[in-house]
Design a protein around this nucleic acid. Structure first.
Lengths: 153, 153
DNA sequence: TTACATTCAGCAAATTTTTCTGTTTTGGGC
DNA sequence: GCCCAAAACAGAAAAATTTGCTGAATGTAA
């Protein structure tokens, strides 16, 4: 697995904390010069360890969108049915995240819709149209208490 | 609400797509010169619209960590009990995200632990020690099918 | 030892960031 | 419609960073 040495891991950790940190600052903290840092960052990007960089926007301040964690139970658990569902559902714009999970449900979706009508349209116009969707349970987010997208690695 | 004009929104959209996009490129795409872009980005940061920048790391390639969506039902729904729980739970390192929600449960936590033992330790050593935690239901992530942290705004 | 590959530091050119200055635009009051 | 003040803007220039290159140091295999 790990072709990743401590410098690689350090870069990943630091760029998770602040994706706009300069190479010079990365170099200073990891006690290397700029060029190896530069090359390693490019390597991490090109080899898929870093999938992208994103700004974390305060959704509540910036829009009226609503968030729901929507849980799906399928009524057909064949590989074909699950794959077909995944393939379709991730293409919906309102679906920001999709996880296949253990337990009572099969999938957890994180849905962001412009408002309650938009969410309703998504549920009835898009989600429920997909084949083999059994029960759907919505947990609407009332407040986001913590959201740290970095991983400990 | 919205002190945000189309340029502000454009910046937020573009930086969500790529947090390392240069100010010059932002300016080109938004048909402005560099300086107003520069000032607006700083304004968005200082006024809390942008909460940070982060690199999206491929967790499966970079570590063996496991992810769980852990649902909490409290046995005391007083404001004091809920607030106390929130305040404590968000401080745990394994708790990456915490949402207060509608429905059968009160909170959804996104937990990232180094391995199953770490998750077990978290549940029994940390989470269950908090006051007024009623039932806990874990949904372990088997595969991440989509994860787009940007919001449509 | 020699040849080769890898990693790195240091340098320099190209590019970007950041500050500053002065102009243009916008909106409120008259 | 005109005027003024505040805000937003473009352009230029200095400071800082990015990016590519060169050669030294290190390790490895023959």
């Amino acid at each position: 697995m790990s072709k990743l040495d401590p410098t690689h891991l350090g870069i990943l950790r630091l760029l998770q904390e602040d994706a706009r940190m300069t190479h010079k600052e990365l170099a200073r903290r990891l006690r290397k010069s700029v060029s190896p840092i530069f090359e390693r960052v490019k390597w991490l990007e090109q080899n898929g360890y870093i999938k992208g960089y994103t700004a974390l926007v305060d959704l509540q301040k910036s829009s009226n969108s609503i968030i729901s964690f929507t849980h799906i139970q399928m009524n057909d658990h064949s590989e074909e049915a699950l794959s077909a569902f995944q393939k379709e559902v991730v293409q919906f714009d309102d679906v920001r995240e999709c996880y296949y999970i253990t337990g009572n449900f099969d999938f957890i979706l994180k849905i962001v819709s412009p408002d309650m009508k938009g969410y309703n349209d998504f549920l009835r116009g898009q989600l429920s149209k997909l084949p083999n969707v059994g029960s759907v349970q919505s947990f609407l987010v009332l407040s986001e208490e913590k959201r740290d997208t970095s991983y400990k690695i």
